[in-house]
Every structure is written in C-alpha cells, then in structure tokens.
C-alpha cells in the first residue's frame, strides 16, 4: 500500500465527517458545491469554507504537535490578537508593509518562545503556562491598539486576506502551504518521531537521547508562529486590528479540530493533515448553521450537539456503530 493511500485510509473518519458536513450544506443551500471561476478566482461554497476556515486551520496545524507532546496551547487566540495589533500599529506608524508583517510574525515567535520556556525549562504544566499569556495577552494587544479597532488602509497588508493566488484566496493558500510545510518538517525530519516519543513517554525518550526540552520548546514556538499568521489573516480580513475580539475562543476551536483529527489529549500520535480536516469539518458545520436561516439562539446548541455527536462517534465504544452509519451515508451520497 502506498503512503498516500495509507494516509487517506487513516483519515477516513475525518473525510466521512467532512462529507456529511458538506452534505448538510448542500441541503441548506442548493448549489453549495458549485464552483465558478471569475476574474481568475474561484468562487463557491467550498472556497468559502476553506477561506473562513483558514485561521483555525493554521491554529490546528500549530496545535497538533503541541497536543502530541501531551501539552496544550491556550494562548493562540490571544497571539492572533497581538500579532494583528502589531501589524496594524506598524503600518499605521509608517512601517513598510513587509517590516510590519515580519514584526507580527516575530511577535508570534516571541510569544511561542515564552510559552516554550515556561513549559520546557521551568517545567510549568502547559495548561497553566499558556494560560498566563491567554489572560495577560489581550491586555497587551489592547495597549497596542489603545482599546480601539485599529483600522488601516495599507493595501499590501489588506491583501494578506483579500488577494488571490492560483485562483484561490490567499488565506487558503497560506493555510495549505503552512500545513504542507509543517507536515514536511515533522515527517521529512525526525521531529515527528521525537514529538510522538516525548508525548508518549518523556522519560524513556530522554534516556534514549532525545533532547526533550528542545522538542517541547520547538512545538510551542511553531504554534506561536502559526497563530501569528492566523492573526495577520484575521486582521487583514476586517482591515483592522480588533484586540478585544480577534481570535477570541479560537484556541478551543483549534483544540477541537486537533481532537477531531484523531490526536489524543494524552499525547502521542498526531497528524497535520487530519487536524486540518478537523478544522474544515468545524467550519463546514458553522457555515451550515449560519446559512440555515434558523434563529441565532440555536447556533451554540446546534454546534454543541454536532460536536458531541462527532466526538461520540470517535469514542472506541461507538466506533463500530458509527462506521456502519457512515458507510450508509456515503452510499446515499453516491446515489445522489
């Protein structure tokens, strides 16, 4: 069996979930799957899901290795807000756009380094270590924006979210490229093995010579960088840095995406690709709920029900039942 088919096979539950979520979208909005090319850019429901899902995809790409080391990064939503604020304040202060963007990404690296230091060197529990930045970080972002929504008109910064590359919105390209790069980084080097080993048994890994501190630090730095990129996209999308709301609660979406992607919160095996699929499943469900025309009071209830259903479906006790159910649904889809 080739590596590709093996990976596709491993991702079957996530692919099935995504198929169901897309099916619901088709049901809610006929013509949802239509794609059309206009002015060199693809339009359609699928593109919307990719585009809107790009920030959480990026967060999930960073979060997956963190969770694989038995850690968690609660600060990614806040890092989004800080990096967006840095970029907006940068261009408004007259910095050239590449400098502002680099400064924003560097901010993410520094935030990640801070988390990594607390976890790897000072041995804080990851949930506590990243909670520090989660709580304090929004204040930092607000100091930068002075509590306002920092609007900007720098066209290149806006283009981070508003332009097209290879017929796709740039955020989609960026998220997929980051996922690809991360996948390459963990699987073409030994980092993936080290991450999984450290997450499964840190003591054995250290005795086998794995530099556990470096591995732990690196995953948080990478998570910070991914969050900064997500923050740039979110900020460019609304042409303004909203320190109060940018990335709010998205860390939870990212964690959920990684869990849907099949990574255990107890660490160990992880997959970048499946985590990305997890993020897309979430976004597809959100899109369906938003477009269903139901009273908004039901939004959270529906989301909660769907998530509960998804996670139950992944529980070992339920898996045989779910597999049969999915198979039947897929049959129906094929007939349709």
């Amino acid at each position: 069996m080739s590596a590709v088919t093996q990976r596709l096979k491993a991702a079957r539950p996530q692919l099935a979930l995504l198929a169901v979520a897309l099916l619901v979208n088709v049901f809610v909005a006929p013509g949802f799957l239509d794609l059309r090319l206009q002015d060199g850019r693809l339009f359609g429901g699928l593109i919307d899901i990719l585009n809107r899902g790009a920030p959480v995809m990026l967060l999930a790409v960073g979060m997956a290795p963190v969770i694989a080391t038995r850690g968690i990064d609660l600060s990614v939503g806040v890092i989004m807000a800080i990096s967006g604020a840095v970029a907006a304040a940068g261009v408004n202060a007259g910095l050239a756009w590449p400098v502002a963007i680099l400064a924003a990404l560097a901010t993410g690296l520094v935030c990640g380094l801070w988390n990594g230091l607390l976890v790897a060197v000072f041995r804080l529990q990851p949930i506590v270590a990243t909670l520090i930045l989660m709580v304090a970080g929004r204040g930092i972002a607000q100091l930068i924006t002075e509590g306002r929504i920092l609007t900007f008109t720098e066209p290149h910064l806006i283009a981070v979210a508003g332009s097209t590359l290879a017929a796709l919105p740039l955020p989609v390209v960026l998220a997929l490229a980051a996922a690809g790069l991360t996948g390459l980084l963990v699987r073409a080097t030994a980092l993936g093995l080290f991450v999984e080993a450290v997450g499964t048994n840190p003591r054995s890994s250290r005795l086998a010579g794995v530099h556990t501190g470096l591995v732990l630090g690196a995953v948080y730095v990478w998570s910070g960088l991914m969050a900064a990129l997500a923050g740039l996209i979110a900020t460019a999308d609304i042409k303004g840095a909203d320190a109060n709301n940018a990335g709010l609660w998205l860390e939870l979406d990212a964690i959920l995406a990684v869990v849907i992607g099949g990574t255990s919160l107890y660490g160990g095996r992880f997959s970048i690709g499946r985590s990305v699929l997890g993020a897309l499943v979430l976004q597809a469900m959100r899109t369906a709920i938003l477009r269903a025309g139901l009273p908004p009071e039901l939004n959270l209830v529906l989301m909660a029900l769907v998530v509960a259903a998804v996670l139950t479906q992944q529980s070992p006790a339920f898996r045989p039942v779910a597999t049969r159910l999915m198979a039947r649904l897929k049959n129906k889809e094929a007939q349709a």
């Binding site: 030994a190 999984e196 080993a197 499964t200 003591r203 890994s205 010579g209 530099h211």
Partner: peptide, 25 residues
C-alpha cells in the same frame, strides 16, 4: 516506565536512540 515508548511501533522504538544521536534534521 523508562525503556519502551509504548504506543510507538517496534521499528520506531529501535531507531529512536540512533535517530536522536544523529539529530532531528
């Protein structure tokens, strides 16, 4: 507790120390 990395394969357990010695890249 200190030896095997349960959850990883036999192959991965065998190569772990050599891989760590070579470095991640």
């Amino acid at each position: 507790l200190d030896g095997i990395v349960a959850g990883l394969s036999i192959r991965e357990n065998i190569v772990l120390a050599l891989q760590a010695k070579r470095g991640w890249w």
